[in-house]
Amino acid sequence: MDYPVNASAGAVDVEMNFEGMFRAYFKSLHAYAYTILKDEDEAEEIVQQVFCRLWERRSSLQIVHSIQSYLYRSVYNDCLNALKHHKVRQAHRQYAMAQGEPESRGSAVSYKELQLRLSDALEKLPEQCRTIFQLSRFEDLKYREIADRMGISVKTVENQMGKALRLMRISLADFLPLFLFLFIETKIS
């Protein structure tokens, strides 16, 4: 059973199709997400996010294959991103524990110093590279969204992000564990 996402019928028909699609796929997508994440609430949140994005993009979204395969692929990608985020948070926790109390004076000084060094490192990046990095990490845009906004290819965004991260790692080598926690999270477009 396939449901049109951007049907030319009236808004009521589109809403009814969307609601039917939600009812038809939610439970199975939730079960699929749970097998990956092993967390009921997080699985539910992931599936709801996928449906929210689908609804928000319904007028411009072009699904090449079936809606079912699109939904499962979206849930899979979002689950992988969540798992990566868990690993980054865990690495930061271990780093923070190894460094001592986060409330200590030394940590506060390190964080302020990191902010200063981060600002300096950002200033040293080439303009396009800096813009792409800021859109990705500070505005939380996916590579495809950055490419569309800037009128460049996704491949260019990927290359520029790689360059930015490489240069930032060099500039912030002393703060690498904290830098990794704050900024290094792979985005799948």
Rank of each mutant, 00 (worst) to 15 (best):
residue 167 L to E: 08
residue 173 A to F: 08
residue 181 F to L: 13
residue 152 I to H: 02
residue 147 A to F: 07
residue 125 L to Y: 04
residue 150 M to C: 06
residue 177 P to F: 01
residue 108 A to K: 15
residue 157 V to S: 01
residue 160 Q to G: 03
residue 123 E to T: 11
residue 150 M to E: 02
residue 120 D to N: 08
residue 177 P to I: 02
residue 108 A to N: 15
residue 111 Y to S: 10
residue 179 F to Y: 11
residue 163 K to W: 10
residue 126 P to K: 04
residue 122 L to R: 04
residue 107 S to D: 14
residue 97 M to I: 13
residue 112 K to Y: 12
residue 183 F to V: 05
residue 114 L to D: 07
residue 103 E to V: 14
residue 148 D to G: 08
residue 145 E to I: 04
residue 99 Q to K: 14
residue 163 K to A: 10
residue 151 G to C: 04
residue 172 L to T: 01
residue 183 F to Q: 03
residue 152 I to S: 01
residue 126 P to Q: 07
residue 151 G to D: 03
residue 182 L to F: 11
residue 173 A to S: 11
residue 144 R to H: 11
residue 174 D to C: 14
residue 103 E to M: 13
residue 164 A to P: 00
residue 138 F to L: 13
residue 114 L to M: 12
residue 184 I to Q: 05
residue 175 F to T: 00
residue 159 N to W: 04
residue 103 E to S: 14
residue 179 F to G: 00
residue 159 N to H: 09
residue 101 E to S: 12
residue 140 D to C: 12
residue 139 E to F: 15
residue 175 F to N: 02
residue 124 K to M: 09
residue 159 N to I: 06
residue 150 M to F: 09
residue 136 S to L: 06
residue 131 T to I: 10
residue 183 F to P: 00
residue 100 G to R: 08
residue 121 A to Q: 00
residue 177 P to Y: 03
residue 122 L to H: 07
residue 120 D to I: 03
residue 101 E to Y: 07
residue 121 A to G: 01
residue 135 L to R: 03
residue 161 M to T: 03
residue 140 D to G: 09
residue 131 T to G: 07
